[in-house]
Amino acid sequence: MKAVLIIISILILVFVIVQLYAMQSQNNIETYQYKVNQKFEDFEIRTYDSSLFTSVKLSGNQYKDMSRKGFRTLASYIFGDNKMNESIAMTSPVSMSLEDSMTMMFLVPKKYSKEDLPQPNNTKIEFRQEPNRKVAAIKFGGWANDRKIKKYREKLMEALDKEGIQYSNHFYFFGYNAPFEVFNRKNEIIVDLNNENEAKESLQ
């Protein structure tokens, strides 16, 4: 019995150390920077500057399956599966377009330009420059799944319709945590807003 208690205590200690390390790592990781234009009860309006991403187009539209496949592909590239065998720092969030054929994207650290990045060994990986954008974003916690993504996408659409804010069909999922992180998990659904919204005083 004593041995069992010792093993349980060790496992708990390891778990706490891993979680503390994960939270500390999140504080040091480079993120996709944005400015909050306006906050509503369930969502906020943001602007993002143009940024460079690595991306891979996926064949399906189910988060459960495609997120694993996309993450493995892009993580392999940044961990050294490239022409220079160079490691590239992980960034946050991981982005997935919510379309019939999903695209997963990793933000490229700002120190790199498109010309500086090592060429991937996997020809399916591309470099993608996202333009300046204005979006609406809604947050939710816990582990993401297809049901939650659908729920919060619909909740965001309902909230935007209620406020009379026009939006595009370009929805994305943003995930901010590694799978092993348990506490303070953060996910978002964002949607690009139509250009005509920029003229609305209510969003300034």
Rank of each mutant, 00 (worst) to 15 (best):
I12Y: 05
I189W: 02
F43N: 03
G175M: 03
P131R: 04
E126W: 03
L52A: 06
R185S: 01
I138T: 08
T73V: 13
K150S: 15
M1W: 09
K148E: 11
Q24K: 13
I165V: 06
P109M: 01
S55L: 04
R147S: 15
V14M: 11
I190R: 05
D146C: 05
T54R: 06
P93E: 05
K200I: 10
I149W: 02
E181M: 08
G164I: 06
E196K: 14
K200F: 08
F180H: 12
A159I: 03
I8K: 00
N85K: 14
P179A: 02
R185I: 07
Y34D: 09
L107T: 02
Y172W: 07
L11A: 13
N122A: 10
L160P: 01
A75P: 07
S87C: 08
P131V: 07
K151S: 06
H170Y: 14
F71T: 07
V36G: 05
F71G: 02
R153Q: 15
S9F: 12
Y63L: 13
E30D: 06
E115Q: 11
E99K: 15
F71M: 08
Q33N: 15
D65N: 15
D100T: 13
N27R: 15
L203H: 02
V36D: 06
L52W: 10
D192S: 11
K200S: 03
K35I: 15
S95P: 00
N187G: 06
E130P: 01
L203K: 01
L203E: 03
Y152C: 02
I189S: 04
K150Y: 12
S101L: 08
N82Q: 05
K111D: 11
F127Y: 12
T31V: 13
Q129P: 08
D100F: 06
M102Q: 05
L5P: 00
K139F: 10
I138N: 02
V182Q: 10
I29N: 02
D146M: 04
T123W: 00
R68G: 15
L98R: 09
D161S: 09
M96K: 01
R185M: 05
K186H: 12
E130R: 12
I17C: 11
I17V: 15
L58R: 02
K39Q: 14
A178N: 12
I8A: 13
Y172D: 01
K83Y: 09
F180R: 03
E198M: 07
G164R: 07
M1Q: 10
S87V: 08
Y112V: 02
F79G: 00
T54Y: 06
Y172R: 08
P118H: 04
V182Y: 13
I190P: 00
K148R: 13
E181L: 10
D49G: 10
N27I: 11
S59F: 06
F174Q: 08
N122P: 00
L156D: 04
L193R: 00
K150N: 14
K186D: 06
G80C: 03
R147C: 06
G164T: 07
T123S: 14
S168E: 10
A22G: 14
Q26W: 02
P120M: 02
Y63W: 10
Q62F: 08
M105Y: 11
H170Q: 15
R133D: 11
N82R: 02
E181T: 12
V18C: 09
Q26F: 09
N28S: 13
P118R: 09
I17S: 09
A75L: 11
E44T: 10
S202N: 14
S76C: 07
V36H: 03
